[in-house]
């Protein structure tokens, strides 16, 4: 890890040098600059990937039963200090959230309460989360777990835009659950509202009942239907709920209601939800709201924290800042 960090620092230095050379010294040719900068960026990128994957593998190992010696820590613990990472608040937050995730996974299901905090002041509206979620969960046309709502405020030149990513709120009192005629959707002890695809009859009552529009119906369509060939990525299995789902014919999840489940399959493997790891603005935080001192539990204590349509009494587990 240390070696990696050095490599990253070194690469960063090369980068700085290259930029410095460009600005201070006109002799350096443009091609040279680009080459140097390219190498520098590549080095940074490789170092980043390695570091992140190392962090992931550590968490992963801890999450697995009988995992590596990393599991020797006390059963429930909040890492004393986030792994230091000079210059990157977001990186330290990710590493901290991963460690907290590992800690939360060691607690019994009922003692966790997965929650999300979305800082709208940091969201740039790039929709990486939306796309990452589509890819992670293999979502067809008509199903989007995490659209980003855009608002424009004020008049030119005093104009502001606000972005509101809208995952499932994982309500404490979910209106979608009691309406299901067959108990196919329910709230897990950890607070995540799930759908049992094998039980869902596809009546779509739950879709009408959600005050956040957070549920969709799988019509069995593909994005590449009217192209020469349905692309393999649309037929490859998704891993929702830790099972393999191949969308083919009328097989579930085709014909079912579908919704965001905080990437439970990733959580259980020690990974953060796809929308969190892909957020370029570092605007989405995730963790166990019941874990004292966790990043998310700290953040929801801020006075600007709010929940969507809180007046309905649904008590979402998704909080917004700003």
């Amino acid at each position: 890890m240390t070696a990696l960090r050095e490599a990253r620092g070194g690469a960063g230095a090369v980068g700085t040098e290259a930029v410095g050379a460009a600005s201070g010294n006109g002799v350096t040719s443009r091609r040279d600059l680009l080459r140097k900068a390219g190498v520098a960026l590549a080095a940074v990128a490789v170092a980043e990937i390695l570091e992140t994957s190392e962090a992931l593998s550590v968490v992963h190992a801890e999450a697995l039963p009988g995992g590596s010696s990393a599991g020797a820590k006390p059963a429930v613990s909040v890492p004393a200090a986030p792994l230091a990472s000079p210059g990157s608040e977001w990186r330290s937050n990710v590493l901290r959230m991963q460690d907290e995730l590992a800690a939360a996974l060691k607690k019994p299901l009922a003692e966790r309460r997965w929650g999300m905090v979305i800082d709208r002041r940091k969201c740039v509206g790039c929709m990486s989360c939306t796309v990452a979620c589509k890819a992670e969960n293999g979502l067809p046309p008509g199903v989007v777990y995490r659209p980003v709502i855009e608002e424009e405020m004020g008049t030119y030149p005093a104009v502001g835009r606000r972005f509101t990513p809208r995952p499932c709120m994982q309500c404490e009192n979910p209106p979608c659950v009691p309406v299901c005629p067959v108990h196919a959707t329910y709230r897990q002890p950890d607070g995540v509202v799930v759908i049992d695809y094998e039980q869902c009859i596809g009546c779509r009552y739950c879709i009408t009942a959600c005050p956040y529009g957070a549920r969709g119906f799988d019509f069995g369509e593909y994005y590449t239907t009217r192209t020469p060939e349905v692309q393999p990525y649309e037929l490859s299995p998704s891993h929702e709920y830790g099972k393999k789902w191949v969308r083919k014919g009328e097989r579930s999840p085709v014909g079912n209601a579908r919704k965001c489940q905080f990437c439970l399959h990733r959580l259980n493997a020690g990974m953060l939800p796809a929308c969190v790891t892909t957020c370029i603005g570092g605007a989405t935080y995730f963790g166990d709201l019941k874990l004292a001192g966790s990043l998310v539990s700290e953040m929801i204590g801020q006075e600007s924290a709010s929940r969507l349509r809180d007046e309905l009494g649904t008590r979402p587990a998704v909080y917004y800042l700003g």
Binding site: P178, V179, C180, P181, V182, H183, A184, Q199, C200, I201, G202, C203, R204, Y205, F217, D218, E250, S252, V254, G255, N256, A257
Partner: peptide, 22 residues
Amino acid sequence: DLGHMARFWKVFLRPNFASPMA
């Protein structure tokens, strides 16, 4: 109208009486 027509019987075998539909 059902997404899974073959599963209609589930309403009889595992009804959720909190749901008006059941």
